[in-house]
Amino acid sequence: LDLGCPADDFAAFCDAHPDRQVVVYANTSAAVKARADWMVTSSCALEIVSDLHAKGQKILWAPDRHLGRYIQEQTGADMLMWNGACIVHDEFKGLELQLLREQHPGALVLVHPESPKSVVEQADVVGSTSALIKAVVEGTAPAYIVATDNGILHRMRQLAPGKTLVEAPTAGNSATCKSCAHCPWMAMNGLANLVDCLESGQPQIHVDEPTRVKAERCITRMLDFTAARKSQVSGMTPGIGAA
């Protein structure tokens, strides 16, 4: 997502629409966040945009157009979209999902909102990673079709052993890989890399101080907003969190 939203192009986009609150997804560069008024995650985006909409604010949204469209439909907010998409979720296919559902008639469909509209429309649950995990852990259905990065399945199996989990399709019958929902960037994060980072302090990411200060503002604003509403959140499932 961040590669599809170059900072210079995004800055020009923002400059062309100065009357809008700039809201960016967490999967963006520090330079893009430096131009934003708000940063959001998929677990708090709806609430933050709803609040801005209630205050009469117009939104400039980046980078994922599918997530932006879903939020716009849910909130009714005036949102101008950057034309970006996640390389994983953008590949889910509505028709193939429909055919898969026919093969698993008792399964509930869990979908991350970064997915195309034709996929989201078939969902029993639409939500963030933690929301989808919670749906499996607390749900009573024996089977679930999961439309998000397949790395989530490991955690689901840990927390809900015995339930059947089926990967949502990303391709048609002629494809060599029917369910290829795997992010190569997230897969670069492994235990060996984590240990090496903790022991050696490498590799380092250097962000110049002016960019850091500007980017921090939209992150702090999100954290302050969610903290103010934390007391209203209940029913958190242990071991899942709120990401």
Rank of each mutant, 00 (worst) to 15 (best):
L3Q: 02
A7I: 10
D8I: 12
F10M: 03
F13L: 06
C14H: 04
H17Q: 12
D19N: 12
D19F: 04
D19T: 14
Q21S: 13
V22F: 09
A26L: 05
N27W: 10
S29M: 10
K33Y: 03
A34I: 12
A36C: 10
M39I: 01
V40Q: 02
V40N: 03
T41F: 08
C44F: 11
A45K: 02
I48C: 04
I48K: 07
S50Y: 03
D51S: 13
D51Y: 12
L52N: 04
K55P: 05
A62Q: 05
P63E: 11
D64C: 14
D64P: 07
H66S: 08
R69D: 14
I71S: 01
I71M: 05
T75M: 03
A77S: 04
A77P: 11
D78A: 07
M79A: 03
M79S: 10
M79E: 08
W82E: 00
A85R: 14
A85I: 08
I87P: 09
I87Q: 06
V88W: 08
H89R: 04
F92D: 00
F92R: 02
K93H: 04
G94Y: 09
L97A: 08
E102N: 09
Q103L: 12
L108T: 07
V109Y: 00
L110M: 04
P116N: 13
K117C: 01
K117R: 15
S118Y: 02
V119T: 09
V120G: 00
E121C: 02
E121P: 01
V126W: 01
V136N: 05
E138P: 00
T140E: 15
V146T: 11
A147R: 02
T148G: 04
T148S: 09
N150G: 10
G151F: 15
L153Q: 11
H154M: 11
M156Q: 06
T164K: 15
L165P: 02
P169E: 07
T170A: 06
T170C: 04
T170P: 00
T176W: 06
A181E: 00
H182Y: 05
H182W: 02
H182I: 11
C183V: 06
P184F: 15
W185M: 05
M188A: 12
N189T: 14
L191G: 01
L191I: 14
A192N: 12
N193F: 06
L198T: 01
S200F: 01
Q204P: 02
Q204C: 11
I205A: 06
H206D: 09
E209R: 15
E209G: 00
T211P: 00
K214W: 07
K214A: 15
E216V: 02
R217K: 13
R221A: 15
R221N: 10
R221Q: 12
M222T: 12
L223F: 08
R229K: 15
R229I: 01
K230F: 05
S231V: 01
M236Q: 13
T237C: 06
G239I: 13
A242V: 10
A243L: 09
A243I: 13
